[in-house]
């Protein structure tokens, strides 16, 4: 089994006619993702990579009632509009790739999604991949391989680096969730840990965190309080980052005394999580915990 997406997932691409949208529609189709429709307001009736385009999510859903998931490539200024549309249409999962959405907007739509039982992944994320089954995202599929370890990460390329190291070491992945680099996110580490806990296809979880906020600390508390059964190994990026500076991601900033790597690493270790010093050490740590 996998979490969030599998070979049955039917996808609508919002912003399909844009440069990013059309390019990644092609790479997702090549991976085997079942993309059944695209949406760009005003471009209804056109075809992108063989996929029919509609003016609205509602219309796409009328023609393709099997759609359950959306991936959003709409530029930041209009992205919220697309997200509300997907939530209102009743989709189960909305993956937001777009970077640069104002946090006041993401606070509102993540809350609205919760009230409507829609899962949001992102914003500012690489998406979700269940290797060999489906890819709803922009990650290079070839670095991932099918297996039984879940990945949850705030980063894109760093996840590819670690997935590549795992794949080379013969450790495949059930699902890899890129939750995004923004300060406010639809899916948190705890949400992802809960999904992997319920999934009988996942034996262990790799958590890839970074400086900023207290999501890693909260995950550590959750692991202790809930007596999380599956082994978790982690890597935290930014341990040498200066305070007060944004390190690339909108959310990667040590501010008001919160968010440095040391406290995250300390709390995760207290929760029994093995924390790697270098990304390349993750496969070794996994082999150790999976043997037990």
């Amino acid at each position: 089994m996998t979490v969030l997406i599998n070979s049955e997932t039917r996808v609508v691409v919002q912003g399909i006619t844009g440069r990013e949208g059309s390019f990644h529609t092609k790479t997702m189709l090549n991976y085997g993702t079942k993309i059944v429709a695209g949406v760009t307001p005003g471009k209804g009736g056109s075809i992108v990579e063989g996929v029919p385009v509609y003016d609205s999510v509602k219309e796409a859903l009328r023609r393709h009632p099997e759609i359950d998931t959306s991936i959003v490539f709409v530029p930041a200024r209009y992205a919220s509009e697309a997200v509300y549309e997907a939530i209102e249409a009743g989709l189960n999962l909305v993956v937001i790739i777009t970077e640069g959405i104002p946090v006041h907007e993401s606070m509102k739509f993540t809350r609205y999604a919760k009230l409507n039982n829609t899962v949001i992944v992102g914003p500012n994320c690489p998406g979700v991949i269940s290797p060999g089954e489906s890819k709803v995202g922009i990650m290079p599929g070839q670095v991932f391989s099918k297996g039984r370890v879940g990945i949850v990460s705030r980063s894109g390329t760093l996840t590819y680096e670690i997935a590549y190291a795992m794949t080379k070491a013969g450790i495949g992945q059930s699902t890899s969730i890129g939750i995004g680099g923004d300060p406010v996110l639809g899916t948190t580490f705890i949400d992802a840990l809960e999904m992997f806990r319920e999934d009988d296809g996942t034996d262990a979880v790799v958590l890839i965190g970074e400086i900023g906020g207290d999501m890693e600390e909260r995950a550590a508390r959750y692991i202790i309080e809930e007596r999380y059964e599956k082994p978790v190994v982690a890597y935290i990026a930014g341990r040498t980052a200066p305070p007060g500076k944004r390190m690339g991601h909108a959310g990667a900033i040590i501010s008001m005394g919160v968010g440095d790597a040391a406290s995250k690493i300390k709390m995760l270790r207290e929760a029994g999580v093995d924390v790697a010093e270098l990304p390349s050490q993750i496969p070794g740590l996994l082999k150790k915990v999976l043997k037990k």
Binding site: S155, E210, G238, R239, T240, M247, G248, P279
Partner: peptide, 21 residues
Amino acid sequence: CNGAGLTMATMDSVYILGGKP
């Protein structure tokens, strides 16, 4: 580097191995 996480991890690795970014 390309990507915030990888850039941070690269910076950290250099530091851990005794260099200074």
